[in-house]
C-alpha cells in the first residue's frame, strides 16, 4: 500500500490546522488560481469551475487538466468554493460524494499547503490549483484572482 503522508507533510498539516484555527476570524483573503508556467490556456471563471467540478477534463489546448484542492482545513478551499463554485465546501463535498461513490468521478487531489500546491503545479504541466494571493511565487503562473 502507498503511504499517504510522510512526517513532514503531517507536521505541515497540523501547523496549517493550528494556524487556521487561530485565524478563523480573519477577513477573506484574495485567492489566486495558478497553473504551470508553460500552460498558455486562458480560462474564465466558468471554465475554472467546470474543471474543479469534473465537468471539463481538458484545457482548451488539449492538455488533460489535473485540478488540485487545498486541504479541507485550509481557508483557501472555503474561499475558492464560495467565490468560484458558488457553494459552501460542504455542498461541494456532497456533490462529489455522489460521483465518487457511484464511480463516476474522482475528487480533485488534496494538497496540504500553498507551498506544496506550488511545487506540484510547477512540476506538472496539466496541474491547476489555487492559493492565497500572498503565497504566489515566480514558479507558477496566475490566471485569475478572486
Amino acid at each position: 500500500m502507498c503511504k499517504q503522508y510522510n512526517k513532514k507533510q503531517l507536521s505541515i498539516m497540523f501547523s496549517t490546522l493550528f494556524v487556521g484555527m487561530l485565524s478563523t476570524s480573519s477577513v477573506s483573503a484574495e485567492i489566486a488560481v495558478i497553473v504551470n508556467a508553460a500552460n498558455s490556456s486562458a480560462l474564465d471563471k466558468n471554465a475554472i469551475e467546470k474543471i474543479f467540478m469534473g465537468k471539463m477534463k481538458k484545457f482548451p489546448n488539449g492538455q488533460v487538466a489535473l485540478p488540485m484542492n487545498a486541504a479541507k482545513s485550509m481557508n483557501s478551499r472555503k474561499e475558492f468554493n464560495k467565490a468560484v463554485i458558488g457553494r459552501s465546501s460542504s455542498q461541494v463535498n456532497a456533490y462529489w460524494s455522489k460521483l465518487v461513490f457511484t464511480g463516476k468521478g474522482s475528487m480533485p487531489k488534496e494538497l496540504s499547503s500553498d507551498a506544496e500546491i506550488i511545487s506540484t503545479i510547477s512540476s506538472n504541466q496539466g496541474a491547476i490549483g489555487y492559493i492565497d494571493s500572498g503565497s504566489v511565487t515566480g514558479a507558477v503562473k496566475v490566471i485569475a484572482k478572486f
Binding site: 463535498n93 456532497a94 456533490y95 460524494s97 455522489k98 461513490f101 457511484t102
Partner: peptide, 10 residues
C-alpha cells in the same frame, strides 16, 4: 437510486 445510501449526498 445510484447513491441512495450515501446520506451525505442529499
Amino acid at each position: 437510486s445510484e447513491f441512495s445510501e450515501v446520506g451525505y449526498a442529499y
